[in-house]
Write a protein that binds this DNA or RNA. Sequence first.
DNA 1: CCATTTCATAACCAGATAGTTTCATAACTG
DNA 2: CAGTTATGAAACTATCTGGTTATGAAATGG
Lengths: 122, 122
Amino acid sequence: MAADQLDATFAALADPTRRAILARLAAGEATVTELAAPFEMSQPAISKHLRVLERAGLVTRTRDAQRRPCRLEARPLQEATAWLENYRTYWEESYQRLDGLLDELRAVEEQSRGAESDEGER
Amino acid sequence: MAADQLDATFAALADPTRRAILARLAAGEATVTELAAPFEMSQPAISKHLRVLERAGLVTRTRDAQRRPCRLEARPLQEATAWLENYRTYWEESYQRLDGLLDELRAVEEQSRGAESDEGER
DNA sequence: CCATTTCATAACCAGATAGTTTCATAACTG
DNA sequence: CAGTTATGAAACTATCTGGTTATGAAATGG
């Protein structure tokens, strides 16, 4: 919940490569080279991304011989979601307003015609 | 849902000043100077933050005389949340694992003693 | 119409980011 | 032990970021 934690988490998520890495890790542990394979990018570049993810607490690394398997840590994602949840009522309210507007339009239409077909629905 | 949109949204959220601005806007529209007031920062700095938020679609501006009232747009927050929701099962699963571990510990404790009080619970 | 308010833009700067290539280290494998 | 694999680290570069000050433009209000 600390601001720095949110800073680091959101900053880490702001890069498509890193989001792809997280998506891959959601399917299970993977080594650095496995993670690097899908990208047209040097291995050190991936290592840097992993360091960013690690500092944000989104990834932890263990040891397996020469390999350093990475594992997803979902906790910061949960905290980021918790922060965003504060705004849920806000966007739901927007939908309510939209719904209200649509209802209103529908009512006006209804009123300004006899008994035609209801094309234009939805 | 486009990657660029998520990039922009998460990048915008990665700054505490900008998150504070959004929190303020959740309470209702505000002008640039109103938004700048709480910060020890020059007005152009706030204008830059607003431009970042605007490009991310998190803020829209209208016109009222010399003032440019800002309004929160929650849609990108909803999309970011939707992305994060994909990982909800993952962190819930972690809790399950934690719960399982606790259950296991409790069982072992239970088994390794007679009928003492259950301190250490939870 | 002149002064004020509100805001944006420009130019600049320091530090962070994202990538590169090259080299080093560590642990397996034969 | 020699070679290979997996990864980290260093040095360099270009671009982005977040801030500054100084200036300019648009609209209001007397």
